[in-house]
Design a protein around this nucleic acid. Structure first.
Lengths: 195, 195, 195, 195
DNA sequence: AGATAAACGAGACGGTACGTCACGTCTTAGG
DNA sequence: CCTAAGACGTGACGTACCGTCTCGTTTATCT
């Protein structure tokens, strides 16, 4: 959920049906029209929801798109045995979501929204910090404690290297990811660490 | 120019003044409003041009943005002595444009446009093919003729690795590139090539 | 009102303020620019209304003009003692509206609109049928029941004779009506009836 | 012709082909689109003429319409034996033009133009003065010299009575003239003259 | 049970922008 | 010098959305 639930004593509660229908309609809208021609009016119509309901619960249009896309990304398995596997697992869920059904179209639209709109970007970066940056920092720290590591290497640079190629392929080129992309990216990352 | 000039014998010629003013106004608009709130009406007003003139000569709005941004990217120097330097030089002009004045804002907007709109993307990819992909292929071929190189390594993957991180930083994170980015990316690329 | 109010239970109601402001702005626009240079944009701006609101409630632009003009025509008094007076009273309200303030300019514009645009014409003819043709038919029937009357004389011909001269003067010549026009027209009509 | 031919000694003369084609295209345009949607661009295209040529030789758009319509009105026969017949003959050519082919549509459009646009109106009134008002005044003078005539009866009022009904039928109602209209109008006129 | 309050669907509203069309002017090449 | 072709600035068209607001209905808690 986007908003912190306000303490209230009376009145109807937020409708879960509406929330679900709106996010579903958002995905359909992204598939059919992309970010450029995205229309709140159409989403409301499609979800049989009032526009008021949309504006009440989400801070911006792009945020809805990001949120709708994030629902497609599964939880990571966390079963990696070495550093390379652990890193690969960080982006594997994204790769997986991209390959299922219309996942590519939805994620494309949502990521463009995140690029275009400040608040949607914030929402995406929040997720990325929690699901990628934080675990990645732990993994890198662990490596650093055992091996020698380049000094000019920080987590943000690592993220650029890890995620950048995906964004380039999916968002800028609108092309599918080649097989075994996340594995290869993880290996590349490890290679970079040597001083 | 976007359109191939049709052979004609009569009638007024395309106004170079208009073209220049429109591209300039486009950059200003991208700086002030970004892609999301980009307005053709405002561009026309600012450029003292007619909307018709804009629609006559450009196939889509995003294309104008890409074209306006490309004017900011200088020609490469082509003075690289080894492979690493040559690769670095491919993205150096982009890095340079990003650092000058409002280059970051303009390129951000234009790249979001390229992500969002098919035709704008085509325009960008055309430039990218000519100025990055083609030279990069030559450099890689040269390396391959001397050294052993990974088999699962093609030009498109190389582009993902080379450009992806920039796109991630600039477009998705809206953050500036760290110092010496292109040099480091080139080194990374070379490292990846070893089997 | 133009549209029959649809039965609805939910949603905001039509704004009477907007409707009034739009009709007022329409009259001002007709006075300043006439039908030829009539601009919906300007009317909307002047009325502080959205163009959508205009297009939502009126089927065409000309219709607004006719409706705005009809508001200037007062109700007939209905105090005529003989046939001639009764007939004169039918067109007297129009004559009256033409003489008050900018009534001439407004009616000129609206009638040109009615001539030019099918739907505006329908709106005008609807009013004319109710306020002139119908009462006129009753008056003629009454005369016919007492006197002998020409056979080749129908209501529509009577309307041509009654209204045509006004239209010619006001709309085609853009000239004011001479004094006592409606009275004289009524007398003329009565004279025509004799076989 | 609208403009007085300028005295010129050198260079090309006005092209009669262009003039004819433009007036023909104007009639077609009036038939298909009426005055409201009349377009100079389309006329130029249809006539394979340059817009410049149109604007050079006609003072306004409406004027072209009036001129194009006037070409459809034949010369009067001038064979009337008594006053009634002579008056009928004044409007007979108009009635005749209205009945031939698309004459009704063309005259409708042109007359609306004359109502709507000052200069087009002037062009029409010039024709009307020469072909109707002037002869009518002579006829009325002749009657007055033989018979007693109403004092409050001037030529302009006579024109209202003579032409008004036609305008009402054709322009405002968009309806065809009933059979024998001009004859009946002439009789009506004569009846009115008695004091 | 009734009052109170929040959320909801529907949809009208003032705005802003869209992409197109037309006007009237200007520029170029050809006759 | 006239003409066809056509680009140009201006401005209006009719449509689509945005984000806000106003309705009446429904749902939940509090008195």
């Amino acid at each position: 959920m986007t908003e912190t639930t306000p303490k209230k004593t009376r009145g109807a509660r937020r409708s879960e049906d509406s929330r679900t229908a709106i996010l579903k309609a958002t995905r359909e809208e992204l598939i059919e029209n992309g970010w450029r021609k995205f229309s709140v009016d159409r989403v409301a119509k499609r979800a049989r929801a009032s526009k008021q309901t949309i504006y009440r619960w989400w801070p911006s249009i792009g945020t809805i798109c990001v949120e709708a896309a994030l629902e497609l990304i599964p939880e990571g398995s966390g079963s990696g045995r070495d550093a390379t596997e652990k890193i690969a697992e960080l982006i594997a869920p994204v790769e997986q979501a991209l390959r299922v059904g219309s996942g590519h179209a939805v994620l494309h639209g949502a990521l463009v929204a995140a690029c275009d709109e400040k608040e949607a970007g914030d929402r995406w970066r929040m997720w990325q910090r929690e699901h990628i940056r934080m675990p990645l920092r732990n993994i890198l720290a662990e490596i650093a404690s055992k091996n020698v590591i380049r000094r000019d290497f920080d987590v943000d640079l690592a993220m650029d290297i890890l995620i950048g190629p995906i964004v380039h392929r999916v968002v800028l080129l609108r092309a599918p990811l080649p097989e075994g992309f996340s594995g290869r990216q993880a290996e590349a990352m490890i290679k970079q660490l040597a001083p």
